[in-house]
Structure formats: C-alpha cells, structure tokens
Design a protein around this nucleic acid. Structure first.
Lengths: 191, 191
DNA sequence: GTTGTCTTCGTACTTAGTACGACTGGCTTG
DNA sequence: CAAGCCAGTCGTACTAAGTACGAAGACAAC
C-alpha cells in the first residue's frame, strides 16, 4: 500500500547512468556492479536491463556522461583560449571522477558527447590553420597530455605535503640501496 | 605412468606469466582467466596459486613483462637519440600487445621493469640539462604521446585502405546529416 | 472487461576467482 | 633404507557477478 512518495520512481536510462556515476564516484569503478547499482536504485538487477543493454552499455554510457561534463567554451573565444578552456575543464572533470581515465581509454564505442567533444577540438585546431597532419599530431598530444595529467593525479590519491613526503620516504626506503636514483630524486624534488 | 616428455614440465612464475602474455596476445585480455591460463599450461586453476598470488598479481606481472620488452638503448647513445630509441621500441612493443596500454594505465603497482624504464627516461632527460619542472612536463608528454599513439593504433584494428575507407563511409552514413563535419573530414582525409 | 504493452522482478544458469584440504613424489635426516 | 617433511598439485565447493527466461503487475485503449 506504500505509495510513491519520492519523485521519479520510474526508472529511465538517465537515472541508471546517473546512479552508476554516483556509485563509481563513491566506491570506485570495481564496485559498479549490476547488483549494487540495482540496490542503489532500490530495485532488482533484471529491472535495469529494460533501460540499458547490459554492463558494457552502462560503462559506455558512463564514459559518455563524463565527456558530457566537459564544459563547452563560449563560441566567441579565440581558438587557443577555447582549447585551453576545454583542457582545464577536462582536468577538473577527471579529477572529480578519478576512475574515469582508464575506462575512457579501454572503451571503444564512443557516445555522442565523446564525438561532439572530439569534433569541437578538431574543428578548433583546424580553424587555427593547421593542416591535417599537424592537427593529428596536435590532437594526440593534447588528448594524451590531459589524460596523462589526470592519470598522474589519480594515482597519487593523497593530499597535503607532509603526507606525500612521508610516503616518498617510505618508497625510497623500500628500494634497494642505490636503485633508481633519478626516480627517487625526482620524487623527492617534485613534491 | 606417462613420464615427462616435454621439457620444463615444472611450473614457475615465469612460465605462468609467459603463458599469460601469450594468451592475451592470442585471444585478448578478456580471455585471460585463471581457468583458461591453467588449461593453456595443461594444469588446473589452483595450481597457479602456488606461483602467483592471484589474478591481480598476474596482471601486474604481465604489465611488467611488457615494460621489460622495451629495448634499452646502447649506453653511448646521446640523450635525444636514446629517448627516441626507447619511444620507437615502446611503440613496437605496444603494437605487439594491443591489449596492454589500458592495462598499464589502470594498474598501480609498478614492477621492477616498469620502474627501471621510468628511471632511465628520467635520468636521460635530467642529463639533458632540464630542471625538474621541465623534466616533469617532458616526461608526461613523452609518456602520454607513446600511449596515445599506441591506443590510437589499437582502437583501429583493421588493415588495408579499402577496408578503412568502407568503415569510414559506414560511420559517416550512420551519423545524422551535418553532424560532426570536422570529425568526418578528419577521418576521410587522414587515412 | 478484455487485451496488449511496458515495466518489474523471482528464479536459476553460467562463468570466474579462490579458500580448504587431501594426495603425491622427491628429498632430508637419522 | 625408513620416516617424515614439504613444495607442488589438484578435487571440491563456495562466492560474486552477469544475464536468460518467463511470470506477474500496472496501465491504456478499445
């Protein structure tokens, strides 16, 4: 007899993907299972299959959601600034979803937001007067740079200089004497 | 009563990882399961656990194996050339193991070969006279560039220009009219 | 009221990782 | 040579996860 008190009890693909992103943000990508997702949505696993094709579709959808979060620069921004705007936004987005970069790189079915983002960047570079060859290189570079940066941040999931210093020291001590000197110096210098 | 006719019937961690890489090369990373690996080695799943700690350890080990395949440049090569040598080698290696890049980015326990590689590149850049700040940027760039390139190659798993052209056309036709013009032009131009 | 469709979900099958404990063949120690 | 230890091997079985199948409920159109 309990009637529907909360709004939007009806499930939709959007709600499923929202919950998936929220769950991944909260508990990591490994915790994103059909069953956990169903629990999150207060329903049962098989219910989800009427809104998404399966686990893979959820992952694809989630990746596209992340792309969609990247902010479009205002249309009147000049090329270089527009690209910069996108990169900064992408970095912020990826920092909010540290589980995302590896996923983005392993999925191969790009969604609409993904395509739109690529389209915009390519068009921007192209308008800058680069030929296709250069666009290709510049694009790979940008993409890789943003990802690389995000990955680096993601794999250093702690904050506060003191904590970093402590960890670095622990790592250094764990190495055999004289091993990886440059790496160690890099680590200790760069934080 | 069948005695050991083939050499090296005894299992070892090395043999397990060898088989794991071979299996991934042949059937993709998704097919790399404990059971399949056991079959490949003509044994039973639980046997593997006396040589590796578990699935994750296998993945970590496999990643380090890939790093180990990257060729060390001769010691007398000048800095720029040494780096180039490594990048070229890395690209070749990653092309042989198209499943590797996403794995490399998602694992977080670097093995010895991984560390040695990073160490060498950092030392090389450092010897080039860059300060730490620049080293950090150059390093991220290099790393990301090689990965990005490998990923791009990996996600276009077909050969032959005709085939590519056909696929490109199919993609173009699948898009709504007028969508992603730059992306499409890029695709058709760049192949 | 009957019928059809959309949504929900109970049940159960399948694949995968892995804990537990038994067996075994060889090597050590007396 | 006998007794026992032990690393390596596996049979069995439990758990978690994805998902196929079909029944049950809600609701709209006739």
């Amino acid at each position: 007899m309990a009637t529907n008190t909360e709004p939007m009890r009806r499930l939709t693909r959007e709600r499923v993907l929202d919950a998936a992103v929220a769950l991944a943000d909260r508990s990591g990508i490994a915790a994103l299972t059909i069953r956990a997702l169903a629990t999150e949505l207060d329903t049962k696993p098989m219910t989800l299959y009427h809104h998404v094709a399966g686990k893979d579709a959820i992952l694809d959808g989630v990746v596209d959601r992340v792309f969609a979060e990247i902010d479009d620069p205002p249309a009147d921004l000049p090329g270089r600034e527009a690209i910069r705007h996108r990169c900064v936004s992408a970095r912020t987005v990826l920092r909010h979803h540290p589980w995302a970069p590896p996923l983005m790189e392993s999925r191969q079915n790009p969604g609409p937001a993904n395509l739109a983002h690529h389209e915009a960047v390519l068009a921007c570079l192209r308008r800058g007067g680069l030929d296709w060859q250069l666009v290709a290189h510049a694009y790979a570079l940008l993409d890789a740079f943003v990802y690389g940066f995000a990955l680096q941040e993601a794999s250093l999931p702690f904050e506060g200089t003191a904590e970093i210093a402590g960890l670095a020291e622990a790592m250094v001590n764990a190495f055999p004497d004289g091993a990886y000197p440059t790496f160690i110096e890099f680590t200790t210098q760069h934080v």
